[in-house]
Amino acid sequence: MNELQFLTWVRGPGLDIAVGIFVLGVVWRLFEIYSLGRKKDLSTPRHAAGASGLHTVFRRSLPPPGMLKRSPVSYIGGYIFHIGLAIVVFGFAPHILLVTNLTGLSWPGLPSQFVDLVAVVTMAAMVVVLVDRINKPAKRFLSTFEDWFTWAVTFLPVLTGWMAVQHLLLPYTTMLALHILSVEILLVVLPFTKLFHAFTLFGSRWYNGRANAQRGVPV
């Protein structure tokens, strides 16, 4: 198999399989999670200002008082790499073209030099976050294989994509194929790992906020 055949495979059957598993996994997990149901809370709801599901969805996006100082890397690094990922994934013209092709939705892209810069910043932030996880004993103790694995499958698409654009290490064709392959791996593992937070994040915040609001506690 030469590199163009490799590229054609990852663009063709490979993508088909990866998207298939992704869709299957996402639908399955969402059904599973939301069909669990909760017992009806029969207690009288207490009302408190700022206590509701919606409030929590937003409040949890901000560090609690004092936490930013205690754990700046987690918050700042985390913010940078999440926003960076969003810009790279949704701002790069070839990515938009893929979404357009799959869904018909389209929006203007960002200049490739800017996306390039953001990719570098994103990777730097991810490396800093990883080093922090290794260095802090508590974080290291709490880390399992899944944490290291999900970090890697998130990092690789950015790295290979950036290397393809920059023509580093391997010919562009091979690198592009590896980039698409790494994204396919990400798609396959996303529904079955903690990366599923991309889908459950706001739902679980709402649930927690709602449950606490019943008790009159704004969290």
Binding site: L7, T8, R11, G12, P13, L15, D16, I17, V19, G20, I21, F22, V23, L24, G25, V26, V27, W28, R29, L30, F31, E32, S35, L36, P94, H95, L97, L98, N101, L102, L176
Partner: peptide, 30 residues
């Protein structure tokens, strides 16, 4: 374009149905 699928995605819809089926089955089990 190089960044779009080489072939139309065929198993997406089937996967969604299978996923829904699996989800429902698992929720009944739960």
């Amino acid at each position: 374009a190089l960044s779009v699928p080489a072939d139309p995605l065929r198993i997406g819809a089937a996967a969604a149905i299978a996923g829904a089926g699996a989800g429902v089955a698992v929720s009944f089990a739960n």
